[in-house]
Design a protein around this nucleic acid. Structure first.
Lengths: 191, 191
DNA sequence: GTTTAAAGTGACACAAGTGTTACTTTGGTC
DNA sequence: GACCAAAGTAACACTTGTGTCACTTTAAAC
């Protein structure tokens, strides 16, 4: 019914995500987006009022995609296999943690202006935590995970694991295996 | 020989550190500093050419202080006691990790302009890594730490541990104990 | 081929931070 | 009390990003 768009929503999200990860929340701006998508800055304002709204949309999109993958993990039979797949998934989706941190940073920098977005952002990780806590509960039930450890310690550690920088470029498989071992059995020798 | 200063170097570093942690690298600026120290913005330029130079000075100061504490850990007898003190130290100095991340972010955003500062920043963590790797080596020597795990995995994980957000406000002692247990013996039950 | 409405744009006024300059203030020295 | 040098400042020109508006372009519908 009208003119053809110069970029798809998918291309737009792809651009936001990469520019955001490259430059960080504060240094990210509409000028970068316009350049990347080869459109004028003004045209972007037709779709999003400001960068917070744009980024919030991206976060929703990313979280939806992540939840789909998480649901697949939950379908796996047996906790050990689930755990294995979960860690692999986290390493495969390394971007999730920085994006979550950006979302937190963003909420800090938002005053009373747009409480609607704030609420939307706050609710974002809830569904994810629910699923993850269900998985942890299963692990404890199965007697695999130590029952006395708080869920949040295990989940938090699992999450931060993917943020450890591999400065020495240890091969990915070896790196992940080492991480799985430490999380599961620790760094100490059995004595 | 001249007029009295309105702030000490210590007050200045204290202000930089807190403003930096509160606002992040990009949102931190001389205006905030001036306001906090109750001086004019222009006067700060008498001491530091720009915010990168100011922040670099802070980083040096912080790292020096941290190295002193690390050296104390190295004096402790027996690896278990060293490990215990090290983890406590990390939790006590929670600010170190965000500051290091800010330093990394800063280096990314610096082009060829000031290579001198870049080099200074790059060398900052080296002495720290040296000490830490010496500690790890002692642990492996003593047969406490698994010899086949890469040092960087253990160190990296140790570092990230302090960044895990304690959303549910689990009491500090319990939280730290749980972290120590996972790092040492893992999340899995012994079978 | 005219109409219509969404897609896109250049240009403007505004806001906030930067770095420098010419200047004033202050307190010790002679 | 004159002077001097360090400490401090207001003000200016500049840069970069924001959000909006009046306008043009384009393709489908009729």
């Amino acid at each position: 019914m009208a003119r053809e768009r110069k970029f798809t929503t998918r291309e737009l999200f792809h651009a936001v995500k990469h520019l955001l990860l490259e430059h960080g929340y504060d240094a990210f701006h509409f000028g970068l987006m316009a350049e990347r998508l080869e459109v004028s800055r003004a045209s972007l304002y037709k779709y999003y009022k400001n960068k917070d709204e744009l980024i919030t949309a991206l976060m929703n999109d990313e979280m939806d995609a992540f939840l789909v993958e998480l649901a697949a993990v939950e379908q796996i039979e047996g906790f050990e296999a689930q755990y294995d797949r979960l860690v692999d998934l986290f390493f495969q989706k390394k971007d999730v943690l920085p994006l979550i941190q950006i979302a937190r940073h963003m909420m800090q920098r938002m005053e009373a202006d747009s409480q609607q977005q704030r609420q939307q952002l706050e609710q974002l990780p809830l569904a994810m935590y629910e699923t993850l806590q269900r998985l942890i509960a299963q692990g404890k039930q199965a007697g695999v995970l130590k029952a006395h450890l708080p869920d949040s310690v295990m989940l938090g550690l699992l999450f931060q694991t993917i943020a450890v920088p591999n400065h020495y470029n240890i091969p990915h498989a070896e790196w992940v295996a080492a991480m799985k071992e430490v999380l599961g059995q620790g760094m100490f020798t059995a004595r």
